Computed example of a mutant assay.
Amino acid sequence: MRKSPDLIAPIKNADDEGAAMPTGTQTLTRGLAVLQAVAGGARDLKDIAQLLGTTRSTTHRLASCLAQERYLRFTPGIGYVLGPKLIELGFQAREEVSLSVVARPYLEQLAEQSGDTIHLALQDSDDVLYLDKIPGKKGLEMRSRVGHRMPIATTGVGKALMLGMSESEWKSLYEKRSSATSIDTSRLLPKRSWSGFRDQMRAYAKGGYAFDLEDNEPSIRCVAAPIYDASHAIVAAISVSSTLPYMPLERMQSLIAVVQGAAAGISGELGGNPEIIGSGPD
């Protein structure tokens, strides 16, 4: 979702008609403001100038310079749009971003807020792969660890990763789920039927979060949320996990907004738009 044009504040001390093109920091600020205006939907010089509070002649010089350098592109009948140079820089920036590094401050803050175990994971085939883990302060041990894989359809982070998928993909992953043999599976809650799992996932997709209600490990509950990148795709997920006595449903409900807030922060670092969280699958 693009930024609305009315979110772009006009530049103070706009120059008079015919004044020389500003230099230095002011020029840079105005050039960036032109890009923001075009990203927000402004297509002609009049609209851009109105948003920035600059004259038409200054706006024309700025837009022409940005178009010459390929940051903007002018298309007859359409107007100004973002140019290919921004696409190049966007892909370069994406390649230089380390998910674990940018996520770590948000994970640490979430751990401090909750006192519980925090996970960061991504999808690896039909499993979740744990990239980071911060143990909780309650002295509880969980079998998850960095580099460990678990079935995607049984974990909180896994279900969060599934929120952008189609229902046919949900069913395929549901049918592939299995219980780990290293635990006492008899203590796990009974597996939901496909229809029950589907209805549960529909509710999660609508809300933009997911729960693990002892689906993967006895007495362990999790609240998870997805992380988006600039392409609006879910690329990872985070969760807050603890044992049943510390995770009654009332507390899990209260943690949804907290976990979503941390996920939105990480999404922003990756160029994602937090507003799409909770939009669910198509």
Rank of each mutant, 00 (worst) to 15 (best):
D16C: 11
A205L: 06
E214C: 04
A180E: 10
L52N: 01
S172E: 14
Y130I: 09
L35K: 05
L249C: 08
S4G: 11
A111V: 00
F91V: 15
S114K: 01
A9K: 08
K3A: 10
P274D: 03
E214S: 07
L120E: 02
L51G: 02
H232K: 10
G115V: 01
S114R: 05
I183K: 00
M165S: 10
G208Q: 12
A236G: 08
A42W: 03
A39C: 13
T25G: 10
Y106E: 13
R221V: 00
Q109I: 12
T54V: 13
A225E: 06
A39L: 14
P105S: 05
A236P: 02
L131E: 01
V146F: 02
E96V: 15
E141R: 12
I266S: 06
M21Y: 11
L110D: 00
D282S: 14
D44A: 05
I118C: 00
L173Y: 10
A230L: 12
E175L: 12
Q113C: 08
A20R: 08
L107K: 06
A33R: 11
G158W: 01
G280W: 07
G31R: 10
S168L: 08
D16V: 12
E141A: 08
A93H: 15
M142R: 12
D215I: 05
Y106D: 08
R221P: 08
A237F: 02
P105W: 04
L110N: 01
V259T: 05
G271M: 04
V101S: 14
A225W: 05
A205C: 09
H60P: 05
Q36V: 14
P218T: 06
M150H: 12
I256A: 02
I277H: 01
N13M: 14
C65G: 10
L99N: 03
L7M: 14
P245N: 07
N13P: 06
P190F: 01
D116I: 02
Y209V: 05
A180M: 15
I277V: 15
S125M: 13
P248G: 10
R177C: 00
S267E: 03
V97S: 15
Y80F: 11
Y228S: 06
L140A: 08
S166H: 02
S172V: 14
W194M: 05
T59K: 14
S195L: 09
P274F: 07
L173R: 11
K159D: 00
L270R: 06
G147R: 00
D215G: 14
G40H: 13
A225G: 01
N13A: 11
Q260L: 07
L161M: 05
A19W: 08
S179W: 10
M150Y: 07
P10Y: 04
M142T: 14
K137Q: 09
V259E: 07
E88G: 15
G272S: 01
L120N: 02
L52I: 01
E96N: 08
E141I: 10
L270F: 04
L188N: 00
A33I: 01
T185V: 12
V235R: 07
A160F: 00
L131T: 02
L7C: 11
I238T: 05
R56M: 10
P10M: 02
A93D: 13
T29C: 11
P274T: 02
P22S: 11
G40I: 07
L270M: 08
D116S: 04
Y228P: 00
G41N: 03
T75M: 09
L140E: 07
D229H: 09
L213R: 15
T75G: 04
R70N: 14
D16S: 13
Y80D: 04
V101K: 15
L255C: 01
E217I: 03
D127I: 00
L131Y: 00
